[in-house]
C-alpha cells in the first residue's frame, strides 16, 4: 500500500471522529480550549502508535481466541504510561483532561485500529497508520477546540482578543455537541464533493 495514502487517510477520508464518529467522548469533553484538545489528541496518538507497533510485532504470537484480551492489556499498559508521565511532567494539562486520560483505554479508535489494521499488517504500515489516525484525531480535536474557544471565550490558544465573555454555551456541554455535529456535516459535504 502507498504509505503516503496510508498516512493521509486519517485526516479527512477516514478521519476517526469526523467520518467514523469513534472516540466521541474525549472529543466532546476535552475540547473546551484548543490546547486541551491538542493535548488529548497527542496523548491518544501516543497510545495508538504504541499499541499498533506492539500488536503488529506480536501478531503471530497471539492466538486468535485470546486476541481481544491481549490487545486490551497492551493498550491499557500504554494508557497507564501516558497517565503517569503526564501527571509527572505536564500537571496542569493532566488536571484539565482528568478522567479522560485513563479512558483512552476504551476509546474505540485504539482497539479498532489494533483489530482492523495492526493485527493484519506489517510493523511499518501499522506505525504509519497509527500516526495518521492519531494525528487526524488530534487535528480534528484541535479545530473543534479552537472553534469552541473562539466562540465561547473570545480567545485562541489562551490569548483573549475580546474583553468580556464570549458565547458561554460553547464552552459548556451543549456547545460541544452542536459544534461537533456541524463539523461532521461539513466533512461529509467535503468527502462527497
Amino acid at each position: 500500500m502507498n504509505q503516503v495514502q496510508n498516512f493521509s487517510k486519517g485526516f479527512i477520508k477516514e478521519n476517526p471522529i469526523l467520518v467514523m464518529v469513534l472516540g466521541a467522548c474525549p472529543a466532546l469533553a476535552t475540547t473546551s480550549s484548543m490546547i486541551n484538545g491538542l493535548g488529548m489528541g497527542l496523548a491518544t496518538t501516543f497510545v495508538l502508535l504504541g499499541s499498533n507497533t506492539v500488536v503488529s510485532l506480536m501478531k503471530n504470537l497471539i492466538p486468535d481466541k485470546v486476541r481481544i484480551p491481549a490487545f486490551i492489556v497492551v493498550i491499557a499498559t500504554f494508557v497507564t504510561i501516558v497517565d503517569l508521565v503526564m501527571n509527572a511532567y505536564v500537571p496542569s494539562l493532566y488536571e484539565s483532561l482528568g478522567i479522560f486520560i485513563p479512558l483512552i483505554v476504551v476509546n474505540c479508535i485504539v482497539l479498532g485500529r489494533a483489530e482492523a489494521f495492526a493485527s493484519k499488517n506489517t510493523v511499518w504500515s501499522s506505525v504509519v497508520d497509527g500516526a495518521g489516525m492519531g494525528l487526524g484525531f488530534t487535528a480534528a480535536l484541535g479545530v473543534l477546540g479552537a472553534i469552541r474557544e473562539i466562540l465561547g471565550s473570545g480567545a485562541i490558544g489562551g490569548f483573549k482578543f475580546i474583553s468580556g465573555d464570549g458565547i458561554l454555551v460553547f464552552i459548556l456541554a451543549p456547545g460541544a455537541f452542536i459544534a461537533l455535529g456541524y463539523m461532521i456535516a461539513i466533512v461529509k459535504k467535503i468527502n462527497k464533493a
Partner: peptide, 9 residues
C-alpha cells in the same frame, strides 16, 4: 450523526 449531535446539544 450530525443531527443526532445537534439534538443532543
Amino acid at each position: 450523526a450530525p443531527i443526532a449531535l445537534v439534538t443532543a446539544g
